[in-house]
Computed example of a mutant assay.
Amino acid sequence: MSTQKVWFITGASKGMGLEVTKAVLNHGDKVIATSRSTDSFLESLGEDNRNLLHLKMDVTNEQEVKDIISKSVKVFGQIGVVVNNAGYNLLGNIEELSDSELRETMDVNVFGMTNVIRHILPHLRRQKSGHIINISSMMGYMSYPGNGSYSASKFAVIGLSEALAQEVEPFGIDVTILAPGTFRTSFMSESSLAVAKNKIDAYNLKEQVETFRSFDGKQLGDPKKLAQVLIQISRMENPPLHLPLGSDSFNAILGSRDREQEELKEWKELSLSTDFK
Results as ranks from 00 to 15, higher is better:
K30N: 05
R126M: 10
F155H: 11
D201C: 02
D99M: 12
V157E: 00
L52W: 13
K199Y: 05
L124F: 11
G159M: 07
L18D: 01
D67W: 11
G221A: 07
I32L: 06
L241F: 13
N51M: 06
K197G: 15
D58W: 09
S37H: 13
G148S: 09
E263L: 14
L243S: 04
S100I: 14
M16N: 08
M188I: 00
L55T: 05
V116S: 04
T10I: 06
L220H: 07
E207I: 00
Y88L: 06
I173K: 12
R126V: 11
F171S: 07
S247V: 10
F76H: 09
E95N: 02
S192R: 12
E64C: 12
K22F: 12
K199D: 03
G11Q: 10
D222S: 03
L42G: 02
D29P: 08
S129E: 06
A86Q: 04
L121V: 07
V31S: 04
V82L: 14
E47Q: 11
K224S: 13
V110C: 03
K225H: 03
R126D: 08
A194W: 07
W267R: 10
K74R: 13
G217H: 10
K154F: 09
E169L: 13
N109E: 01
H242F: 15
D58H: 14
S271L: 13
I9H: 11
E260C: 08
Q228D: 04
M16G: 01
G80E: 09
V65I: 09
V108G: 02
L25S: 05
F183T: 01
L42Y: 13
Y141T: 00
D58N: 14
K224R: 15
Q63W: 02
L193E: 01
